[in-house]
Amino acid sequence: MIKVLHPGLHTTFQDIGRFGVAQYAIPQSGVMDEYAAKLANLLLQNKANYPVLEISLFGPKLLFEKETELVCTGLKAKIQLNSVEVPINEVLAVKKGDVLHIQQVSEGNYVYLACNGGFISDVVFNSRSFYEGITPQEKVEKQDELAMSNSYQLARASTEKHAQLKFQKEQYKNDILEVFEGPEFHCLSQVQQDKLLNAKFHLSKNYNRMAFQIEEIFSNQLESIITSPVIPGTVQLTPDGKLIVLMKDAQITGGYPRVLQLGRKAISLLAQKRQNEAIQFQKLKI
């Protein structure tokens, strides 16, 4: 067990999300940065889709009631184990009674915490990803007891650690988001299409697990569409010119024109961008 001494700002369990429940309008959910979350599991030789704790900005303070191995992945964070600073992206051995405190995510938005063997939490529609109204909890709370699987061998990760597995931070320095055309891209004029694919945009202060909004106003004459399917990565353009990139907790339908669609890698990259950071869309061919 892990006892939550302090839950942090917004800490949730996430895995690869839900499949097969869009017919009930249940969002996909799942980790915002698939790359970082997957690496956390791989560093511990877990299966890539094991649930992880997704930690944003100010992280939790956790008391370990049994020994395990864990890793925090992400761009940069201030992490302490028993008040001693420890590195991100490296496997740590923890003993019974140890206290891990992820004080601050200092670069990017999300840090992922995985433990050897994985966590156990409520499975709802084949996923442990937290979502309000679907899972019993929407975020980790103070005094929660987080259960860990018993099915791991502590020696494994230390003896067979993959030397070649390393968090590739350079890829996050890129401001190019690879996109496909959205269903209503062709409704934009040639000039607007070029502008959308060549201009530099910046992230607004409005970003969360549902959507990241862009600061610049992109004037347009597109009409609303009849309510149609949207997925994580869909870029909607509102009549008043707001560009909204839908993320993992997005609703499953929307009524705004869908001008672009981010690829999966671009979603991971965008997930770690903060307010005022620049982004540029670059078209991929299907």
Binding site: F180, S228, P229, I231, Q261, G263, I286
Partner: peptide, 9 residues
């Protein structure tokens, strides 16, 4: 219409 890597509309 192909929407992203996983979806056909």
């Amino acid at each position: 219409f192909q929407l992203g890597e996983q979806v056909l509309l």
